[in-house]
Amino acid sequence: MLAMLLRRLFLGLVTVWIVSMIIFAGVEMLPGDSCTAFLEREAQGKLLENCREAQGLNRPAAERYFDWATSAARGDLGISANGEKSIAELVGDRLGNSLLLAACSLALGVPLAIFLGVVTGLWRDRPVDLAVSTLAIFAMTIPEFVSATVLILIFSVWLGWLPGIVLTSASAPASEFFPEIILPVLVLTMVMTAHILRMVRSSVIEVMVGDYIQMATLKGVPYWRIVFRHALPNALLPAINVVALTIAWLLGGVVVIEVVFNYPGLGRMMIDAISDRDLPVVQAIALIVATVYVCVNLSADILTMFANPRLRTLHMRRG
């Protein structure tokens, strides 16, 4: 068991390491560097040489990668190319904001998705299932920027209940993001709920026609007891992995929403850094997002293993 955990952790670290090399190589292959970006038109001759000298860009790539990777491992992500500010500090604020957005969306979306998934699964092909499943398809297919715009139109422009854009500064404490954060949370919730609910629905349907549910019925177990004790613990196991993927998506991939609502999260910072050619920041964010993916998936696997007695014995036996 412990050996399994250590093995998985080790493999996770290897993944992050490989990803870090790919990120570094990718950025390296781009034409130009942070000096050409910073100096713009003056990026030539002596000035460029001096800049590169000052930033250590003249050293061999392997050496620079080693420096970058070792300091990143220590938590030091370097200095932003233009602002001379510590990236760890800049990214830290943004990561916190992204976490806030993700946490609010998850807190709202996961229980809602599981509830609706179970309801539609149990009442398969009934009106409630048809209505919810149709809405879910809409929520999944309408692009986020469209639904975001529509919500802004309704709640900010017509009704005037909620602010349509986030004006709070990136380093403000979490409490100051209310109520501006509500609309982005709503849009994200819609999309993720639709995904998770469809997965839960099909899993509930599959479990409910299973032999052990028939057996429980014929053992005289009352219906709701069957649902909660026999069906759901099995039906919700696959949900763990989908929720994990959603978390990773929320922390790194909600660029469109952050741009539409002007929300100061990681996604928008990445976009800004790319257009500014702020390559150290791009590298740092890519590395953070990769690490988040690895961590979240690892925790999901471990959680599934603990929740599923079959997997648990399997790993116990293997030692």
Binding site: G210, D211, Y212, M215, G220, R229, N308, P309
Partner: peptide, 25 residues
Amino acid sequence: ELEQIRGGELALIPQNSGQSLTPTL
């Protein structure tokens, strides 16, 4: 009434117990 009788007065032994026992209990 059915819940009372099933598993009480009238009990079933299923075909494939491996799949008829709830795996998480």
